[in-house]
Amino acid sequence: MTADSSASGRPITVSVVDDDPMICQAMSMILNDYSGGRVTVVSTSGNGRDAVEQARAEHPDVVLMDIAMPGGDGIEATARLRRLPDPPHVLILTSLSPKDTVERAAEAGAEGFVSKTDAPEEIIDRIIGACEGRPQYNPASQRQLLADLHAHRPLTRRDEARALLDTLSERERQAVLLAAEGLTNQEIAERMFTSERTAKAHLSSASEKLCMSRVQIAQLVGRADLPSPLD
């Protein structure tokens, strides 16, 4: 589709989506007047719903998609565009990179970001680059994507640790949580109102189920970040 545009010499067709008519007008002027015939704007729209319908009818090569708009945000519209039979490339049109936006946009199928404050040639280069199959994430969006991934990674490790602990019985779970606090078998027994032999049996059973030593279980409990039992 867009690769053929470049090869055939015909302009790359673009649809601009933003609920601010001034932004649509400015982007249209930049792309039509500064691209030297390489890019042409075929339509503009003010919400995601209209953008999808226009793309279905016009088959633009690229859609520049704003994020916050009426009728569903731009990321939802991006996902709908990418499910079309002949989907356009989508670049998110934004002046900011709010938390989680970059990751959500990538998951929806967006191939990069275009800042509303970028120089005209940079915007045009990003559109051409997307058509050539090159992801167009500027340094700010790359930093945000990495920040989002790092922010989610500890939660994933915590959830994995909690899921492992959930495989234990209630009494085994209580025993390992107390052991992770550094309590001896006798102290664990006293806290659980049972015998030391029974407390030790709970810990041994938990160790066998998890295939972990007492030290490894303590580390697992630390990652799970759970409240102390019987408080």
Results as ranks from 00 to 15, higher is better:
residue 65 M to K: 03
residue 57 A to L: 08
residue 101 T to H: 11
residue 47 N to H: 09
residue 116 K to G: 12
residue 157 R to Q: 14
residue 84 L to A: 01
residue 104 R to F: 04
residue 127 I to L: 06
residue 129 G to H: 03
residue 75 I to S: 02
residue 63 V to G: 10
residue 126 R to K: 13
residue 43 S to M: 13
residue 37 G to E: 08
residue 131 C to S: 03
residue 112 G to S: 08
residue 68 A to H: 15
residue 46 G to W: 13
residue 63 V to L: 13
residue 41 V to D: 11
residue 26 A to F: 15
residue 109 G to L: 05
residue 97 S to K: 06
residue 37 G to S: 05
residue 155 L to P: 00
residue 133 G to T: 00
residue 107 E to G: 02
residue 133 G to P: 00
residue 43 S to H: 14
residue 127 I to G: 05
residue 133 G to I: 01
residue 83 R to A: 15
residue 50 D to H: 05
residue 89 H to S: 04
residue 143 R to T: 14
residue 36 G to L: 12
residue 126 R to L: 07
residue 86 D to Y: 07
residue 92 I to H: 02
residue 119 A to T: 07
residue 135 P to Q: 10
residue 129 G to V: 04
residue 95 S to P: 00
residue 144 Q to L: 08
residue 135 P to R: 06
residue 70 P to L: 13
residue 156 T to I: 10
residue 61 D to F: 03
residue 137 Y to R: 02
residue 29 M to V: 01
residue 146 L to M: 09
residue 64 L to V: 03
residue 99 K to W: 15
residue 32 N to V: 06
residue 36 G to R: 04
residue 102 V to F: 09
residue 97 S to Q: 13
residue 134 R to Q: 12
residue 78 T to S: 11
residue 36 G to C: 12
residue 26 A to R: 07
residue 37 G to C: 04
residue 158 R to P: 02
residue 89 H to F: 10
residue 145 L to S: 02
residue 121 E to Q: 08
residue 49 R to T: 08
residue 77 A to G: 07
residue 26 A to N: 11
residue 144 Q to E: 13
residue 135 P to W: 09
residue 83 R to K: 15
residue 81 L to H: 02
residue 132 E to A: 10
residue 85 P to M: 06
